[in-house]
Simulated assay, not measured.
Amino acid sequence: MGSASRAVSCLCCPCKCLACGLFSCLCSILVSVIVTAGVLALILYFIFRPQMITATADSAALSQFSLSPASTLTYDLAVNLTLHNPNTRVGLYYDSVESLAFYKDQRFGYDPLDSFYQGTKASTQLAADFRGQQLLQGDVTAAEFRQEQTDGNFAINVDLNAKLRVKVWAFKVRGPNAKVTCKLSVPAPGATNASPFQPTDCKVGF
C-alpha cells in the first residue's frame, strides 16, 4: 500500500520526487565532505602536532614616566621580548608587526617592528621602544598614576600584534592574526622603593 501510494505520488508530481532525490544526494555529498575533511584534519594534526607560540617579556625599563597637571604623559619605555616557536615542522612568518603600550587601558605608545621569519624550534628577540607624549583622559587615571608613583612600580601593558603566515615544507599559507599581551610591573624612574622587574610570561591569542 505504501509503495503504491509513493508511486502514485511520483506520477502525480514527478518534480517532487526529483527534488527529494536531489536533496538526499546533496546531503550525502555534504556528509561525505565533512567526514573526509575531519579525517584529513586529524591526520594533519598528528603529523604536524601544532603548538601555541610562547612569549616572554625579558626586561622593561622606564627612563621617563611623568604626568603633567594637564594629564599629559611624557614617557620613555624600553621593552625586550622573546617569542618562541615550539613546533618541529611548522615555520612562521610574522608580517605587519606592531607593538603598543597601554596605561590604564589607554594607549600611549606605538612602535612598528620589522617583519621576520621564525624557523622551527627557534626563538626571536624583539626590542620595542616607546618615546613621546600622550594626553591621558580622566581624573581617576591621574590619581592612580600618583599612587603607583608613590608605591614605586607602574602597571603597564605591552601588546604585540602580527599577521602570521605558516610554512609547511615548501608551502606557505596565510595563518591567523597573533596578539601577544604582556602585563608588566615596571619600576618607576628613580624610585628607591621599587620592586625589580621580573621576567614575565605573556598571553598569546589569535
Rank of each mutant, 00 (worst) to 15 (best):
G175I: 09
D129R: 13
V158F: 04
R174H: 13
E148D: 13
F65A: 02
N157W: 00
N85S: 07
P112I: 10
C15V: 14
A78I: 03
P196A: 11
F23N: 07
E148N: 09
E148V: 05
C17S: 11
P189D: 07
D111Q: 04
K203Y: 12
N85P: 11
R131G: 07
V33G: 03
P189G: 09
S99Q: 02
V39P: 02
T72H: 11
I47M: 06
K183P: 00
F108P: 02
T120V: 12
G205C: 01
A78N: 12
S32A: 15
Q106I: 03
S9L: 11
A188H: 01
L135T: 08
I47D: 08
L92S: 05
F65C: 01
L42I: 02
F116N: 00
Q51D: 15
P187D: 01
A55C: 15
D139N: 13
G205L: 04
K179V: 09
K16E: 13
G2E: 11
A7D: 09
R6A: 13
L92T: 06
P14A: 10
A60P: 02
R107I: 03
A70G: 07
D129A: 10
Q134F: 03
S195H: 07
A4M: 13
M52T: 14
S24Q: 05
L26S: 08
I29V: 15
S185C: 02
C25E: 08
L83C: 06
P176F: 14
R49L: 11
G138E: 01
F206Y: 15
F48C: 05
D139P: 00
V39T: 15
D105K: 08
H84G: 01
V173C: 05
F145C: 02
V204Y: 01
C13N: 15
W169F: 13
A60R: 02
N193R: 09
V79E: 01
K179L: 14
P189N: 04
A122R: 13
T74E: 12
F48M: 06
C25G: 12
A55L: 09
P176L: 13
P50K: 06
T74H: 10
A122V: 10
Q118N: 07
R165E: 13
D111S: 14
S71T: 08
A178Y: 04
T88P: 00
C20W: 09
Q137Y: 06
T150N: 11
I47L: 13
K172T: 15
T74R: 10
A143I: 08
Q106M: 01
N87M: 07
P176G: 09
P189E: 04
G138V: 04
L164M: 12
I29G: 05
D159Y: 10
F108S: 01
L67H: 08
L18Y: 06
Y103I: 03
A178S: 12
A194E: 06
R174K: 15
S71R: 14
V186Y: 03
S32C: 15
S5V: 12
Y110F: 12
R49K: 14
K203V: 09
M1A: 12
R89M: 05
R146L: 10
L92A: 00
R146H: 11
R165K: 15
A19W: 05
V140N: 10
C15T: 10
